[in-house]
Design a protein around this nucleic acid. Structure first.
Lengths: 118, 118
DNA sequence: TCAATTACTTACGTCTTCGTAAGTGCGCGA
DNA sequence: TCGCGCACTTACGAAGACGTAAGTAATTGA
Protein backbone atom coordinates (compact mmCIF):
# COMPACT_ATOMS: atom_id res chain seq x y z
CA UNK A 1 0.00 0.00 0.00
CA UNK A 2 1.01 3.57 -0.42
CA UNK A 3 2.06 5.83 2.37
CA UNK A 4 -0.61 8.43 1.75
CA UNK A 5 -3.76 8.44 3.81
CA UNK A 6 -7.14 7.29 2.60
CA UNK A 7 -8.52 10.80 2.89
CA UNK A 8 -5.69 12.00 0.69
CA UNK A 9 -6.39 9.40 -1.92
CA UNK A 10 -10.06 10.25 -1.92
CA UNK A 11 -9.12 13.86 -2.43
CA UNK A 12 -6.79 13.00 -5.26
CA UNK A 13 -9.60 10.94 -6.69
CA UNK A 14 -11.89 13.96 -6.58
CA UNK A 15 -9.22 15.96 -8.30
CA UNK A 16 -9.02 13.62 -11.26
CA UNK A 17 -12.81 13.51 -11.42
CA UNK A 18 -12.96 17.29 -11.54
CA UNK A 19 -10.16 17.43 -14.09
CA UNK A 20 -11.98 15.01 -16.33
CA UNK A 21 -14.99 17.29 -16.26
CA UNK A 22 -13.11 20.49 -17.10
CA UNK A 23 -10.59 18.95 -19.47
CA UNK A 24 -11.03 20.69 -22.76
CA UNK A 25 -9.56 23.87 -24.05
CA UNK A 26 -12.73 25.93 -23.63
CA UNK A 27 -14.72 24.19 -20.93
CA UNK A 28 -13.61 26.24 -17.94
CA UNK A 29 -14.24 29.42 -19.88
CA UNK A 30 -17.66 28.21 -20.96
CA UNK A 31 -18.52 27.46 -17.34
CA UNK A 32 -17.19 30.84 -16.39
CA UNK A 33 -19.37 32.63 -18.90
CA UNK A 34 -22.50 30.84 -17.78
CA UNK A 35 -22.12 31.93 -14.17
CA UNK A 36 -24.40 34.95 -14.46
CA UNK A 37 -27.19 34.00 -16.78
CA UNK A 38 -28.18 31.43 -19.37
CA UNK A 39 -26.76 32.04 -22.79
CA UNK A 40 -27.77 30.94 -26.24
CA UNK A 41 -25.42 29.07 -28.53
CA UNK A 42 -24.65 32.13 -30.59
CA UNK A 43 -24.19 34.33 -27.56
CA UNK A 44 -21.65 31.90 -26.16
CA UNK A 45 -19.82 31.76 -29.43
CA UNK A 46 -19.53 35.53 -29.54
CA UNK A 47 -18.19 35.60 -26.01
CA UNK A 48 -15.50 33.05 -26.80
CA UNK A 49 -13.50 34.68 -29.55
CA UNK A 50 -11.61 32.06 -31.46
CA UNK A 51 -13.81 29.10 -30.74
CA UNK A 52 -15.33 27.27 -33.67
CA UNK A 53 -18.92 26.16 -33.74
CA UNK A 54 -17.84 22.56 -33.93
CA UNK A 55 -15.77 22.77 -30.77
CA UNK A 56 -18.38 24.77 -28.91
CA UNK A 57 -20.97 22.19 -29.81
CA UNK A 58 -18.71 19.34 -28.74
CA UNK A 59 -17.71 20.82 -25.43
CA UNK A 60 -21.25 21.82 -24.56
CA UNK A 61 -22.35 18.27 -25.24
CA UNK A 62 -19.66 16.88 -22.99
CA UNK A 63 -20.54 19.33 -20.26
CA UNK A 64 -24.14 18.19 -20.51
CA UNK A 65 -23.02 14.58 -20.16
CA UNK A 66 -21.05 15.56 -17.08
CA UNK A 67 -24.15 17.15 -15.58
CA UNK A 68 -22.61 20.60 -15.53
CA UNK A 69 -24.64 22.33 -18.18
CA UNK A 70 -28.34 22.15 -18.95
CA UNK A 71 -29.68 22.61 -22.46
CA UNK A 72 -33.18 23.96 -22.88
CA UNK A 73 -35.13 24.30 -26.08
CA UNK A 74 -37.81 26.92 -26.05
CA UNK A 75 -40.69 26.07 -28.28
CA UNK A 76 -41.06 29.34 -30.02
CA UNK A 77 -41.69 29.74 -33.70
CA UNK A 78 -37.99 30.22 -34.19
CA UNK A 79 -35.60 27.72 -32.64
CA UNK A 80 -34.19 29.00 -29.41
CA UNK A 81 -31.75 27.10 -27.18
CA UNK A 82 -30.41 28.22 -23.86
CA UNK A 83 -27.50 26.82 -21.93
CA UNK A 84 -27.23 27.25 -18.18
CA UNK A 85 -25.38 25.77 -15.23
CA UNK A 86 -26.96 23.00 -13.24
CA UNK A 87 -26.67 23.25 -9.44
CA UNK A 88 -23.50 21.10 -9.42
CA UNK A 89 -22.27 23.19 -12.29
CA UNK A 90 -22.79 26.34 -10.28
CA UNK A 91 -20.71 24.83 -7.48
CA UNK A 92 -18.00 23.83 -9.93
CA UNK A 93 -18.05 27.41 -11.07
CA UNK A 94 -17.05 28.49 -7.57
CA UNK A 95 -13.94 26.37 -7.85
CA UNK A 96 -13.27 27.75 -11.30
CA UNK A 97 -13.71 31.17 -9.83
CA UNK A 98 -11.05 30.40 -7.23
CA UNK A 99 -8.70 29.55 -10.06
CA UNK A 100 -9.54 32.78 -11.84
CA UNK A 101 -8.92 34.81 -8.71
CA UNK A 102 -5.57 33.18 -8.22
CA UNK A 103 -4.77 33.87 -11.83
CA UNK A 104 -5.55 37.55 -11.67
CA UNK A 105 -3.43 37.86 -8.54
CA UNK A 106 -0.47 35.68 -9.41
CA UNK A 107 -0.74 34.59 -12.99
CA UNK A 108 1.41 36.43 -15.43
CA UNK A 109 -0.62 37.89 -18.27
CA UNK A 110 1.18 40.00 -20.86
CA UNK A 111 -0.44 43.16 -19.54
CA UNK A 112 -2.08 43.73 -16.15
CA UNK A 113 -5.19 45.33 -17.56
CA UNK A 114 -8.35 43.65 -16.43
CA UNK A 115 -10.67 42.98 -19.30
CA UNK A 116 -12.94 40.23 -18.23
CA UNK A 117 -14.23 40.85 -14.80
CA UNK A 118 -17.72 39.95 -13.83
CA UNK B 1 4.99 29.27 -34.27
CA UNK B 2 1.67 30.51 -35.57
CA UNK B 3 0.21 33.01 -33.22
CA UNK B 4 -3.51 33.22 -32.93
CA UNK B 5 -5.28 36.53 -33.24
CA UNK B 6 -5.18 38.92 -30.36
CA UNK B 7 -8.93 38.59 -30.06
CA UNK B 8 -7.93 35.73 -27.81
CA UNK B 9 -6.13 38.18 -25.64
CA UNK B 10 -9.45 39.76 -24.88
CA UNK B 11 -10.07 36.63 -22.90
CA UNK B 12 -6.72 36.82 -21.20
CA UNK B 13 -8.01 37.15 -17.69
CA UNK B 14 -7.17 35.40 -14.51
CA UNK B 15 -8.84 32.23 -15.60
CA UNK B 16 -6.78 31.72 -18.71
CA UNK B 17 -3.66 32.69 -16.81
CA UNK B 18 -4.41 30.03 -14.23
CA UNK B 19 -5.32 27.51 -16.89
CA UNK B 20 -2.04 28.09 -18.64
CA UNK B 21 -0.25 27.30 -15.42
CA UNK B 22 -2.09 24.08 -14.68
CA UNK B 23 -2.47 22.87 -18.24
CA UNK B 24 -0.77 19.53 -18.44
CA UNK B 25 -2.03 16.11 -17.69
CA UNK B 26 -0.21 15.75 -14.40
CA UNK B 27 0.38 19.28 -13.18
CA UNK B 28 -2.63 19.65 -10.90
CA UNK B 29 -1.86 16.30 -9.35
CA UNK B 30 1.77 17.24 -8.89
CA UNK B 31 0.72 20.44 -7.16
CA UNK B 32 -1.72 18.50 -5.06
CA UNK B 33 0.92 16.03 -3.93
CA UNK B 34 3.30 18.77 -2.92
CA UNK B 35 0.79 20.35 -0.56
CA UNK B 36 2.06 18.65 2.56
CA UNK B 37 5.82 18.42 2.26
CA UNK B 38 8.62 18.69 -0.25
CA UNK B 39 9.20 15.59 -2.30
CA UNK B 40 12.12 14.25 -4.24
CA UNK B 41 11.93 13.39 -7.91
CA UNK B 42 11.68 9.69 -7.25
CA UNK B 43 9.14 10.12 -4.49
CA UNK B 44 6.92 12.13 -6.79
CA UNK B 45 7.23 9.54 -9.49
CA UNK B 46 6.15 6.80 -7.14
CA UNK B 47 3.15 8.83 -6.03
CA UNK B 48 2.00 9.37 -9.59
CA UNK B 49 1.46 5.87 -10.90
CA UNK B 50 1.61 5.89 -14.66
CA UNK B 51 3.72 8.98 -15.15
CA UNK B 52 6.96 8.62 -17.05
CA UNK B 53 10.18 10.22 -15.94
CA UNK B 54 10.24 12.32 -19.08
CA UNK B 55 6.83 13.80 -18.44
CA UNK B 56 7.47 14.35 -14.76
CA UNK B 57 10.67 16.16 -15.62
CA UNK B 58 8.94 18.29 -18.23
CA UNK B 59 6.00 19.29 -16.12
CA UNK B 60 8.16 20.07 -13.11
CA UNK B 61 10.26 22.32 -15.29
CA UNK B 62 7.21 24.15 -16.56
CA UNK B 63 5.87 24.54 -13.05
CA UNK B 64 9.18 26.05 -12.03
CA UNK B 65 8.97 28.50 -14.92
CA UNK B 66 5.48 29.45 -13.78
CA UNK B 67 6.79 30.12 -10.29
CA UNK B 68 4.69 27.40 -8.72
CA UNK B 69 7.34 24.90 -7.78
CA UNK B 70 10.76 25.44 -6.30
CA UNK B 71 13.61 23.06 -7.02
CA UNK B 72 16.34 22.74 -4.44
CA UNK B 73 19.57 20.84 -4.76
CA UNK B 74 21.10 19.74 -1.54
CA UNK B 75 24.81 19.56 -1.70
CA UNK B 76 25.30 16.25 -0.09
CA UNK B 77 27.71 13.68 -1.34
CA UNK B 78 24.88 12.02 -3.15
CA UNK B 79 22.72 14.16 -5.40
CA UNK B 80 19.48 15.09 -3.70
CA UNK B 81 16.77 17.27 -5.18
CA UNK B 82 13.62 18.42 -3.49
CA UNK B 83 10.57 19.97 -5.05
CA UNK B 84 8.22 22.15 -3.03
CA UNK B 85 5.51 24.73 -3.57
CA UNK B 86 6.38 28.39 -3.63
CA UNK B 87 4.03 30.73 -1.73
CA UNK B 88 2.01 31.46 -4.88
CA UNK B 89 2.05 27.75 -5.55
CA UNK B 90 0.60 27.07 -2.13
CA UNK B 91 -2.20 29.49 -2.88
CA UNK B 92 -2.81 27.85 -6.23
CA UNK B 93 -3.02 24.62 -4.35
CA UNK B 94 -5.98 25.99 -2.39
CA UNK B 95 -7.83 26.50 -5.66
CA UNK B 96 -6.82 23.04 -6.80
CA UNK B 97 -8.15 21.73 -3.51
CA UNK B 98 -11.47 23.40 -4.21
CA UNK B 99 -11.60 21.48 -7.47
CA UNK B 100 -10.76 18.26 -5.67
CA UNK B 101 -13.48 18.82 -3.11
CA UNK B 102 -16.02 19.47 -5.80
CA UNK B 103 -14.88 16.33 -7.56
CA UNK B 104 -15.26 14.08 -4.56
CA UNK B 105 -18.74 15.47 -3.96
CA UNK B 106 -20.11 15.73 -7.48
CA UNK B 107 -17.67 14.19 -9.88
CA UNK B 108 -18.98 11.12 -11.59
CA UNK B 109 -16.52 8.29 -11.94
CA UNK B 110 -17.19 6.16 -15.02
CA UNK B 111 -18.09 3.15 -12.92
CA UNK B 112 -18.87 3.04 -9.21
CA UNK B 113 -16.30 0.37 -8.42
CA UNK B 114 -13.43 1.92 -10.29
CA UNK B 115 -10.52 2.60 -8.04
CA UNK B 116 -9.15 6.02 -8.56
CA UNK B 117 -5.65 6.46 -9.83
CA UNK B 118 -3.78 3.56 -11.12
C1' DT C 1 -37.44 34.89 -54.00
C1' DC C 2 -33.07 35.88 -51.91
C1' DA C 3 -30.25 36.42 -48.16
C1' DA C 4 -29.38 36.05 -43.39
C1' DT C 5 -29.67 34.04 -38.77
C1' DT C 6 -29.85 30.12 -35.53
C1' DA C 7 -28.14 25.80 -34.10
C1' DC C 8 -25.90 22.71 -35.24
C1' DT C 9 -23.16 18.37 -38.10
C1' DT C 10 -19.59 16.21 -41.11
C1' DA C 11 -15.17 15.50 -43.38
C1' DC C 12 -10.58 16.23 -43.29
C1' DG C 13 -6.07 17.71 -41.87
C1' DT C 14 -2.73 19.45 -38.55
C1' DC C 15 -0.40 20.07 -34.46
C1' DT C 16 0.34 19.41 -29.71
C1' DT C 17 0.74 16.27 -26.14
C1' DC C 18 1.79 12.24 -24.24
C1' DG C 19 4.06 7.68 -23.83
C1' DT C 20 7.95 4.17 -24.72
C1' DA C 21 12.39 3.01 -24.73
C1' DA C 22 16.83 3.87 -24.24
C1' DG C 23 20.91 6.47 -22.71
C1' DT C 24 23.75 9.64 -19.41
C1' DG C 25 26.76 10.75 -15.34
C1' DC C 26 27.41 10.31 -10.63
C1' DG C 27 27.97 8.05 -6.10
C1' DC C 28 27.45 4.17 -3.18
C1' DG C 29 27.14 -0.57 -1.22
C1' DA C 30 28.55 -5.38 -1.77
C1' DT D 1 34.51 -3.25 -9.96
C1' DC D 2 29.95 -4.46 -10.74
C1' DG D 3 25.54 -3.19 -10.59
C1' DC D 4 22.05 -0.31 -8.67
C1' DG D 5 19.47 3.95 -7.59
C1' DC D 6 18.96 8.85 -8.46
C1' DA D 7 17.85 12.58 -11.49
C1' DC D 8 17.41 13.40 -15.35
C1' DT D 9 17.74 13.76 -21.21
C1' DT D 10 16.95 12.32 -26.08
C1' DA D 11 14.72 10.18 -30.09
C1' DC D 12 10.79 8.41 -32.00
C1' DG D 13 5.98 7.49 -32.72
C1' DA D 14 0.96 7.25 -31.90
C1' DA D 15 -3.28 9.28 -30.30
C1' DG D 16 -6.43 12.60 -30.05
C1' DA D 17 -7.65 17.26 -29.37
C1' DC D 18 -8.28 21.04 -32.02
C1' DG D 19 -9.16 23.97 -36.24
C1' DT D 20 -11.04 24.88 -41.12
C1' DA D 21 -14.36 24.65 -44.30
C1' DA D 22 -18.45 23.38 -45.87
C1' DG D 23 -23.19 21.61 -45.45
C1' DT D 24 -28.04 21.13 -43.27
C1' DA D 25 -32.78 22.55 -41.94
C1' DA D 26 -35.91 25.84 -40.29
C1' DT D 27 -37.44 30.59 -40.15
C1' DT D 28 -37.80 35.40 -41.13
C1' DG D 29 -36.88 40.05 -42.92
C1' DA D 30 -36.04 42.64 -47.33
Amino acid sequence: MTNTTNADEQQACGLTAALNVISGKWKPTIIWHLHAQPLRFGELRRRLPGISEKILSEQLKELQLSGIVRREEFDEARLRVEYSLTPPGALLNRAVHALAEWGSAYGNPPAPNVMCQR
